[in-house]
Computed example of a mutant assay.
Amino acid sequence: MPRRAGLGLSLAAGLLVLGATAPSPRAAPGTQVELVAELAVAKTAATQGLSGLELSADGTHGLLVADRGWRLDVTIARRDETPVALRVSPPLRLTGPDGHPLEGRAETDAEALALASDGTLFVAFEGDHRILRWAPGAVRPAPMDPSPDAAAYPENGGIEALALGPDGALYAIPERWEVDGAIPVYRHDGRGWTLAASLTPQGRFHPSGADFGPDGRLYLLERAFDGPFGFRSRVRRIALGPEGATEDSVLLETGSGRHGNLEGLAVWRDAAGAIRLSMVSDDNGLAIQRNQFVEYRVVSGAAGL
């Protein structure tokens, strides 16, 4: 599965502000993306609301979480590295610290996941805002100490993006919560939470997924709702350092309705050395919305979207 260092968490509290507000995101000069594939994912009770995605280093195997409290393994058939079919395994219920399956909207609303190389799984939930951690092979998760400001998150605006950094720390980003007008990027290093960076919000876009790429950069998936026209999606590429976010560029921005409600993001490198952006959409359990697997390739000199 993903090529990431393990993370041992001693659940200590505390928040230390480290990051400064980043410059506004701008289109990366000389870098564009091309659409590789757009595949439908069969709609079932378990695949309603796909919200989190992790992929293996070669993009052929992965893990999904969905809003109704399910986790699903996925296999992606590729021909010349182009996705041609998806096979989703029988779903498994996410469990609570008591070992029982999660039930009820407030408990089951899984919105983001991160998977360490040793099999440790982190899942963030809305409704009852929390992050649970499953040790490798464990049935019962352990609750992490709450992310900063979790008690004040809106019901549908908590942690929407999780990612494991090259340093092994867990990064968490809320959807609809700003600190002094900026999007906070929180970091848990095994001892407690710190503020790793503050990102400048742009327009009506809000965070919906994140991943660290093999280049060490943070890739942030955002979406904007345009009413009857559907959703717009955007992917930002961010360099994080001791001073917070030092670079912030836009790699992809789609028009209204180009894709579904993209919420899960996995970033990996193909055999040719190009960065791939693989995403899944949340249909919100509605027949009129799409369940999709969407993949872009970051290239130079590609045709515009």
Rank of each mutant, 00 (worst) to 15 (best):
T21E: 15
D58S: 07
S10F: 08
P154E: 11
E81G: 05
A42G: 11
G165L: 08
I275Q: 11
L50Y: 06
P146S: 05
P184V: 05
L18N: 13
R26T: 15
G190E: 03
L86S: 08
A161T: 09
A28V: 01
L240P: 05
S10Q: 15
H206R: 14
A182T: 11
A13E: 15
R78H: 00
E295L: 01
A28F: 02
L64N: 05
Y296G: 02
G14K: 03
V41K: 01
M144A: 07
L7Q: 12
Q48N: 15
A124V: 04
A22W: 10
P29K: 05
R258K: 13
R223A: 09
V298E: 03
T194N: 07
E126L: 12
T194G: 14
A22D: 06
R105V: 12
T75V: 07
R3L: 13
L64D: 09
G127I: 11
R237E: 11
A138T: 07
R237V: 09
Y186T: 06
G227D: 09
G165F: 02
L220Y: 03
A22V: 08
G168W: 05
V139I: 14
G227L: 02
L220H: 08
E103P: 12
R133H: 04
S198I: 00
A13Q: 14
T47F: 05
T47W: 00
L11H: 12
T120A: 11
T75N: 14
L286Q: 13
S51E: 12
D167P: 06
T60L: 07
L199S: 04
T31D: 01
D118P: 05
D149R: 10
A150Q: 02
I238M: 08
L265T: 06
T44S: 15
A151P: 00
A5V: 06
L132I: 04
G230R: 06
G190W: 11
R3T: 12
Q48K: 15
A303Y: 13
I76W: 04
E295I: 08
D67V: 10
R93K: 14
G192W: 04
R191M: 10
W134D: 02
A150S: 09
A169Q: 08
A28L: 10
P23H: 10
V179N: 00
V74E: 09
I159A: 01
R78D: 00
S278V: 09
P228M: 03
R176P: 01
L113Y: 02
D180W: 02
R191L: 12
E34R: 14
A224Y: 00
R236Q: 06
A197S: 10
A302L: 14
S117K: 03
R232G: 11
Y186K: 07
V139W: 12
R87L: 04
T82Q: 14
V179G: 01
R269I: 04
A37D: 08
I183V: 13
T246I: 10
A266I: 04
H206C: 01
E103T: 14
V294H: 11
L121Q: 07
I183L: 13
A135Q: 13
A45F: 12
D128K: 15
R234P: 00
L15T: 04
L195V: 03
T108K: 14
R176E: 10
Q292I: 03
G99L: 15
L251H: 06
S281A: 12
E107T: 02
R269L: 04
L39R: 03
A77W: 03
D149Q: 08
G14N: 08
P166I: 03
V250C: 05
G119W: 02
